[in-house]
Nucleic acid binder design. Sequence first.
DNA 1: CGCTAGCA
DNA 2: TGCTAGCGG
Length: 328
Amino acid sequence: MGVKFKDIVSPESIGFNELEGKIVALDAANIIYQFLSSIRQVDGTPLMDHNRNITSHFSGILYRTSSLVEKGIKPVYVFDGASSHLKKGTQDKRREVKEESEKKWKEALDEGDIQEARKYAVRSSRMSPGVVEGSKKLLELMGIPYIQAKGEGEAQASYMVERGDAWCVGSQDYDCILFGATRMVKNLTITGGKANLELIQLKKVLEQVELTREQLVDVAILVGTDFNEGIKGIGAKKGLKLIKKHGDVFKALEHLDVEMEVDPQILRDMFLDHDVLEDYSLKWKKPDREGATDFLCGEHDFSEERVSSALDKLKKLDMNQSSLEQWF
DNA sequence: CGCTAGCA
DNA sequence: TGCTAGCGG
């Protein structure tokens, strides 16, 4: 879900051409979840193979990744590692919603209300360990690198951008800028003709709100994050005003005369002083055509024709490649 | 969500 | 050539 900063961040509209030749660190959980939610039949049933294994995420990863590569983008996926115990509250709440949605989905199906069924099916999407495992396997077969974060995938991806190893994070969550990503791009979808890419630059955001990153994190703490509830009745705009007026979250809380359930300093550290993997390498390899075809078509019932044309798009990576020996 | 056949 | 409905697995 991420921090609700929509009201205080103004994104720049860009085109795919501005991402040409750039490395984009993709928040794997964020993207796979989108695929699991939206790649479904009209009644909400996900795509499945003959063994009833869900394959929606394979479809999404295959087609989106190959299309990004075709546009000259070098993607790297970043997977979540261990999640903080602070996230437990958020996770419990999400699980509840999903269980409830699954019931309502089945009820709606029994009643033949297809629209209602789909609505709840989307909300019931869950990312099992098997989904993550399968996604990594597919990426490997496609020759696309992925990184296993120590903690939050978003935090690791943001670190990679801050360090200059990637140009931007591809994610829907504004958390990336709190984690220190100098750039993030939203809506990194293909959608045929009209793209709706939104570039958010940390530097520009900070200039616009006239705060430091530390203070922006303090705003988030007041508003609420995946790690804390936030203060009731305070959204991005009020939070921003409070931090501007009082300087930091501690003084703002004092003024409001409220206490938080989590020590704000611990929350600050989640965004400003998190554990990251520093030793990684990014290599785009030639895809394992046979392996990918066996996996997708043999095991999971994909059409050979469609898989073949998607894999063809990955050839774009061999040009302008700094280290050609990885490809040949 | 992304592909593609079918239509203007 | 550009668009959209509807299928994909």
